[in-house]
Design a protein around this nucleic acid. Structure first.
Length: 479
RNA sequence: UCUCCCUUAGCUCAGUUGGUUAGAGCAUCUGACUGUUAAUCAGAGGGUCCAAGGUUCGAGUCCUUGAGGGAGAGCCA
């Protein structure tokens, strides 16, 4: 007999048919009702056993977390909590679960803190919340590939091991197979990387952007979607040492095209999740609502999770330049009352408190800030005609902060070479990058999206560690 | 890396001014019941009070240091 997924049965119940279901027991109530989940949906199916007709020793083994195979007729439920249920003809225990051991895990049938769940990352997939999060994480991932495929972008695999850290995006993890106990030294007494596997010092990638640019200047439009590694000692709910990043790069696009692409992209993901993850989203929505209730009134979100996603899908993002943002901030109440801890004047980078004010208080919608001072942005961003600013953009989301960072790239060889010199980068290291400006250079633009931050937004999770299966953070690489 | 907060039963937490044998809810176990919805009722078991040191007649409670976790900041996606 062929196993049927619970999602399929619940979506289109065929009353009267005999079905085989395999899954894990969530609860066994009144010695009669087995709640079974197989991961295909957040919903359980209820299997009803006439305990009078079954061996007591078999029923004893139907415990929370055990795995079972159940065969029976699909019937309309007599109870109220569900439309259909399985009238059990046979039960097979596939794998036992000792209740005394289960009691110590996140699978015991009760409410747990997310911190406790995190300590059992290997088992937390069995919970409703984490299960919903990872089904949605998959859907976001799929939506991204679908969006770019429909846009005509090619999925490009940029290297994970690279010698390039010229972007200065962050501290890198070194990759070596040298004997750490006995490092080879050169004549100056430094480590001799010529003896290392690649014959040079290499690290895990902090960004695939520079490589993506090379491909975009031939294939027209590409995107990367891969792991990214930063060895920064960041201890926040928004940072990981290993995270996933999406970096589209499009030839002939200017900054405005780039903003349009970003906005279309983010709205597409939101809409896809609203349309395709209803049950999981509803569960997380209700969970979020309860969470909001326990917070003090002034920290509560005015909108529910679903409303927040709808808002992003339906409303235009607010676009303004860095210079305009400085003006808005200098005219704001907190600035006049000296509530900001960091100074607000043209030329300084904006801090969290400023970004949050703009997004959460002033405009109350996603904000795209553009045209930042050249000094506070990376070397590859295109210099504007004013000579002071570059064609950069940051997309700020309520509650998440910076979710996208991007720019139009500097395509003019002379300007780019000068910037590289100004930033004290060795020109020889980037010869391959500069070559693209030598042979038919064109304007182009792209951006980077923090995948986990997007998943946080559509699931309502407040800590980034709860939206990646096995989080890597300072002092933590368990599992 | 900095600031603040937390660490007591399997989990979530209470524990008064430093004072007898450290409590509750849920979970687990045993029994009863059986169309339940995180079933219900009765009972039972379950503690290195994060670690080390100190103050004190006496420390879960006060002090010091350390470890782990959380929130915020910096950095960023």
């Amino acid at each position: 007999m062929k196993r049927e997924k619970i999602a399929a049965i619940l979506n289109a119940p065929k009353i009267g048919e005999k079905v085989l279901v395999k899954g894990w027991v969530r609860s066994f109530r009144a010695n009669r009702f087995i709640s079974i989940n197989d991961g295909s949906t957040i919903n359980n199916i209820q299997a009803v056993v006439e305990f009078e007709n079954f061996d007591e020793s078999l029923l004893k083994r139907i415990t929370t977390a055990s795995s079972v195979a159940v065969i029976g007729e699909l019937v309309e439920s007599q109870g109220k909590g569900q439309a259909v249920e399985i009238k059990v003809e046979s039960v097979e225990i596939i794998g036992d679960a000792n209740p005394d051991d289960v009691q110590k895990t996140v699978m015991q049938p009760k409410k747990h803190s997310l911190e406790f769940l995190r300590e059992q990352a290997h088992l937390r997939f069995r919970t409703n919340t984490v299960g919903a999060v990872f089904r949605i994480r998959h859907a976001v991932s799929y939506a991204i590939h679908k969006f770019f495929n429909d846009e005509g972008c090619y999925y490009l695999h940029t290297p994970i091991i690279t010698a390039s850290d010229a972007e200065g995006a962050g501290e890198t993890f070194h990759v070596t197979n040298l004997d750490m106990e006995n490092l080879p030294k050169n004549e100056e007494g430094n480590i001799n990387f010529k003896e290392d596997f690649f014959g040079k010092k290499v690290n895990l990638t902090v960004s695939g952007q520079l490589e993506a640019e090379l491909a975009a200047l031939a294939l027209g439009q590409v995107y990367t979607f891969g792991p990214t590694f930063r060895a920064e000692n960041s201890n926040t709910s928004r940072h990981l040492a290993e995270f996933w990043m999406i970096e589209p790069e499009v030839a002939f696009n200017d900054l405005k095209d780039n903003m349009d692409l970003t906005e279309r992209f983010l709205k597409y993901i939101g809409k896809y999740i609203l349309d395709n993850c209803k049950d999981d989203l509803q569960f997380l929505n209700d969970r979020d609502a309860k969470e909001q209730q326990s917070k003090p009134q002034n920290q509560r979100n005015e909108l529910s999770l679903i409303e927040r996603i709808q808002f992003v899908v339906e409303n235009d993002f607010k676009r303004l330049t860095y210079t305009e943002a400085i003006e808005v901030l200098r005219n704001s109440k907190p600035f006049k009352k000296k509530k900001f801890k960091f100074p607000v004047e043209w030329g300084v980078d904006l801090h969290s408190e400023h970004e949050r004010y703009l997004v959460e208080k002033e405009f109350k919608c996603p904000v795209i800030l553009t045209d930042y001072p050249a000094e506070i942005k990376a070397f590859y961003m295109r210099q504007n005609d004013d000579g002071k600013t570059v064609a950069a953009m940051d997309v700020l989301f309520p509650g998440i902060g910076e979710i996208v960072g991007g720019s139009q790239r500097e395509e003019r060889m002379d300007v780019l070479k000068k910037k590289i010199a100004d930033f004290n980068i060795e020109e020889e290291e980037l010869w391959w990058y500069l070559d693209t400006r030598k042979f038919g250079t064109v304007p182009h633009a792209g951006f980077g999206l923090g995948f986990e931050r997007m998943v946080m937004f559509v699931t309502g999770m407040a800590n980034i560690r709860d939206v990646i299966p096995f989080p890597r953070t300072p002092q933590n690489a368990e599992f």
